[in-house]
């Protein structure tokens, strides 16, 4: 008995020490980690939009975040869009709830500022406070509308879909006509050297310049990637040559990765689904915003 108590005491003490060390490290590093994640996300967004070294981000460019939620209440389900709105030049947030037929169901002002809106916990709490008791919310995804001088110029979509191994997390940039500007694979756990090559320029840049109609019909083909096309995808040619070659291939199918056809297909299908749903949802949201005269910031 004495031995058991001794073991329990020592194991408990070890766990407490580990908890103190990990907890203290978390407290000291959390702010810097969140800042890094946000900075990394912003860098990725601007890179997808074509900005970076040599092409600074113009001061007139603005990013407007739209958060989509599924709201469940007894007897029905709603889709809630948390959109940034302007009121006397000040940014606020409004939750626009639509029923499953795309008709306006409810509209509430949410007490959030831009900083708070980035934090999922603060966002969820603020939404739950305005929709009232007895309802549940589930975060679905978020979209960024990019404006330049107040005019829409692009959209940034975050998405997660199944890959060959686990999930693939991506960010996709579309222009105002829904043509792909760029793709970034943020996270994946595909096989190193095979499916994990989806994040390489020679694969992911194949989606650049695809219109929404071309993207919807894209197939993956098991053919060798033409050498010149690969050089253009990797940016190893002069800009004029890259443009010319990319134009030649903009309606062609996607060349599968060697030894990773399933990963190539899963990514392609995932993007097709993501863009198709986004275009459909945005059309509905835009119609409702216009009908209800909601003064969104984008």
């Amino acid at each position: 008995m004495k031995d058991i108590l001794n073991i329990v005491f020592r194991l408990t003490a070890s766990c407490l020490m580990a908890a103190v060390v990990m907890g203290a490290t978390f407290i000291f590093t959390d702010k810097a980690k969140k800042h890094n994640e946000h900075a990394r996300e912003e860098r990725t967004m601007y890179r997808l939009l074509g900005y970076g070294e040599g092409k600074p981000v113009p001061s007139t460019l603005a990013l407007h975040q739209i958060y989509r939620y599924v709201i469940t209440e007894p007897g029905r389900q709603l889709i809630g869009y948390l959109v940034p709105t302007t009121n006397a030049g000040k940014i606020g947030y409004t939750l626009v709830s639509l029923d499953l037929e795309g008709k306006m169901a409810d509209r509430k002002t949410v007490a959030l500022d831009v900083e708070q809106s980035r934090e999922k916990e603060a966002r969820d709490k603020a939404i739950l406070a305005v929709i009232g008791p007895g309802k549940e919310i589930r975060f679905a995804d978020h979209t960024i509308v990019v404006t330049d001088n107040g005019k829409r110029v692009a959209y940034l979509l975050g998405g997660k879909f199944p890959g060959f191994k686990t999930f693939i997390n991506v960010m996709l940039a579309l222009d105002q006509q829904y043509t792909t500007l760029g793709l970034e694979v943020l996270e994946n756990e595909e096989d190193p050297g095979l499916g994990a090559e989806i994040e390489k320029d020679y694969f992911k840049n194949q989606f650049k310049g695809r219109t929404v109609d071309v993207l919807k019909g894209l197939q993956v083909v098991k053919e060798p990637l033409p050498d010149q096309y690969r050089q253009a995808l990797e940016g190893r040619l002069a800009d004029a040559d890259v443009f010319r070659i990319m134009e030649q291939f903009k309606d062609k199918n996607i060349y599968a990765l060697t030894g990773a056809t399933i990963s190539s297909r899963m990514l392609t299908d995932g993007l097709k689904g993501m863009v198709g749903k986004f275009v459909y949802r945005l059309d509905i949201l835009d119609r409702v915003l216009k009908e209800q005269k909601i003064a969104v910031s984008f």
Partner: peptide, 22 residues
């Protein structure tokens, strides 16, 4: 105890690197 120690250091290194060596 070894597993707990390794897990603790893995977590600490993971958090510190994420924060200061992005």
């Amino acid at each position: 105890t070894y597993t707990l120690t390794i897990a603790t250091w893995v977590t600490v290194i993971d958090l510190v690197m994420a924060a200061y060596l992005p």
